[in-house]
Design a protein around this nucleic acid. Structure first.
Length: 526
RNA sequence: GCUCCGGUGGUGUAGCCCGGCCAAUCAUACCGGCCUUUCGAGCCGGUGACCCGGGUUCAAAUCCCGGCCGGAGCACCA
């Protein structure tokens, strides 16, 4: 009842009186009153699971957003944020999602030709298939057109200052001598640039902003520069390249982008680009910026860093299971939905986030635990003998506690167990081979155990149930891990789940990748 | 240095714009218990936070001011 707020003081008085009156009543009477009135109160409304905060001034059906990477490597968990968050908003508002390659620098951040395809693949896999794909490097003439307009309007000019010279002008807030070049002269110089009459670094096109702008970063910025280098996608067709700020400013308008969400490192871009929007009379999209993400286990998610390490041979490739690339996570058997949820759980705040990959594991676990079949994998195996067990028994073990179903192992007197389980035992200890039987260690040096019975209850207490494998009917198994790789044996039954994610009990979830004499699996997560 | 932006449990996040349903959400981590069988899965429970100081107000996580701490940009990179 907000209309009563202004009368709060009077109401407070009334409340006090009521409380006094209530306190003077008998215990029984009080109970009765409480029951009578609380019954009328509505239960607190359930809070809906709000995944993302609403987008400012967004109308259903009219939202257009984009994710604009430079494809200089495959998408990582960092890129996935741009993909998933933009796509998610498009889904919420039934908008249009555009993937745009901002690939206008053939040298310093040189695009990687395969990466274009990788972005397409990974977007689709992440359930974020773009409605439209745009390649900036294929649309250079469009940017030239707008540059010419600005030169005509004398809102841009060719500048012959060296980087260092211009820095002085920028820092002191003084206009450089080239700033008042006439439209006519500017266009002539521009023509010569396009004809290849200048060397790299000799001349650039600058956008006029305000040389007295309080933030030096905004003052007359570069829109075009000359780079004589083949572009991986379009070859040597162009050598006058727009900078990101220019290309992106034009494209965002042309594509009708309504909302931009991107890293806060690009916050100043908005300030710079607004000048162009003002000159052309365009409306700037609504922007939102987020901080950096780093993941404890992976560190910073920089593509160029990863590239160096791959080239140095530290990793096997871009899908090495130790890498934070989307291809690696896919190879490890993560569900796209888990990655989406994980990313959305980071929100869209401006502070930097440092989060543990365990959150991603937890999301994925919820999805795969109910469906993943269980198998035994014995790494660093130790062969043990069980005395007093003369027959081979069929051991039925549940495939999945929720789904039901069984697999069968031949329980015999020669089995493998994990070295780490064996090592912690001392002679006389009794352990249970899960679902099979109980055994007592009698000779540690020779790894000899004694059969103690099939009954579970004898050893149920404690932490004495371990997994095992019969010496027969196993396959060699190699697991590509994150911390380390594992070698050992897996039960043959696992071959029925080739290509799937299974849970190796007491080890981890793993994706069974291929079988070539050896079962090769990739570690998913615990 | 100049400019801009942030600070909610161990971690991430919701709430902040529009002050009261907030003794603060959800998740993860951690701890404890449960399970005719995963010491590494599952199920149940528990611990745990509004950066500090002032101000405005009947009422502040929310508004204002100051401080402290953190981040980003200041490229012919994206």
């Amino acid at each position: 009842m907000p209309e009563l707020r202004s009368k709060a003081k009077e109401i407070l008085e009334l409340v006090r009186e009521c409380v006094k009156e209530f306190e003077s009543l008998s215990e029984e009477k009080r109970r009765e009153l409480i029951e009578r009135y609380t019954a009328e109160l509505k239960p607190k409304e359930e809070r809906k699971e709000k995944i993302l905060p609403p987008l400012e001034r967004a109308e259903k059906g009219k939202v257009v957003m984009r994710f604009a990477p430079n494809p200089n490597g495959p998408p990582t968990l960092g890129s996935a944020r741009g993909i998933v968050v933009n796509d998610e908003y498009c889904k919420i508002y039934e908008g249009k999602f555009i993937l745009r390659f901002d690939d206008t620098d053939p040298r310093t951040k040189r695009p990687m030709i395969e990466a274009y395809e990788w972005y397409l693949e990974d977007c689709e896999w992440l359930d974020a298939k773009p409605d439209e794909v745009v390649y900036a490097s294929k649309r250079i003439p469009i940017y030239y057109e707008y540059c010419e307009k600005l030169l005509e309007m004398e809102k841009a000019y060719p500048c012959f200052c060296s980087k260092e010279e211009f820095k002085k002008y920028r820092d002191s807030g003084v206009e450089c001598p080239h700033r008042n070049t006439s439209a006519e002269d500017s266009l002539e110089i521009w023509e010569k640039m396009l004809n290849g009459e200048f060397d790299e670094g000799e001349v650039v096109i600058r956008i006029k902003t305000d040389m007295k702008h309080k933030d030096p970063a905004i003052r007359d910025w570069v829109a075009f520069r000359i780079i004589y280098e083949d572009h991986p996608l379009v070859g040597d067709e162009f050598f006058v390249w727009p900078t990101l700020d220019f290309e992106s400013a034009i494209e965002d308008h042309l594509l009708g982008i309504t909302h931009i969400i991107r890293g806060k490192d690009l916050r100043d871009s908005e300030l710079r680009q607004r000048y162009i929007y003002e000159y052309f009379g365009w409306d700037y999209p609504i922007t939102k910026h987020w901080g950096k993400v780093s993941i404890h286990e992976f560190g910073k998610l920089s593509t160029s860093e990863l590239r160096k390490e791959i080239e140095a041979g530290k990793y096997q490739g871009w899908d090495d299971p130790r890498l934070p690339t989307i291809r690696a996570l896919r190879r490890r058997g993560f569900k796209p939905e888990a990655i989406r949820k994980f990313i959305l759980s980071l929100g869209v705040g401006e502070n930097d986030v440092a989060v543990s990959v365990k959150n991603l594991y937890a999301e994925n676990r919820k999805l795969i635990d109910p469906i993943a079949n269980r198998y035994f994998f014995v790494w660093d195996p130790v062969e043990i003998k069980i005395e007093g067990l003369d027959r081979v028994v069929d051991v039925k073990i549940p495939l999945n506690p929720k789904k039901g179903g069984y697999r069968v192992l031949k329980g015999s007197n020669e089995v493998y167990i994990c070295r780490e389980d064996f090592d912690r035992l001392k002679e006389g200890d009794v352990i249970r081979l899960k679902d099979f039987c109980n055994v007592r260690l009698i000779d540690k040096d020779k790894a000899i155990f004694e059969f103690e019975g099939f009954e579970l209850r004898d050893v149920k207490k404690g932490k004495n149930i371990i997994h095992w494998l019969p010496k027969q009917d196993v396959v060699e198994c190699y697991v590509y891990g994150v911390e380390r790789d594992y070698k050992g044996f897996a039960e043959k039954n696992a071959l029925n789940d080739m290509g799937k994610v299974v849970q190796f009990e007491r080890f981890a979830f793993c994706k069974l990748e291929k079988f070539d004499e050896v079962l090769r699996a990739v570690y998913t997560h615990p």
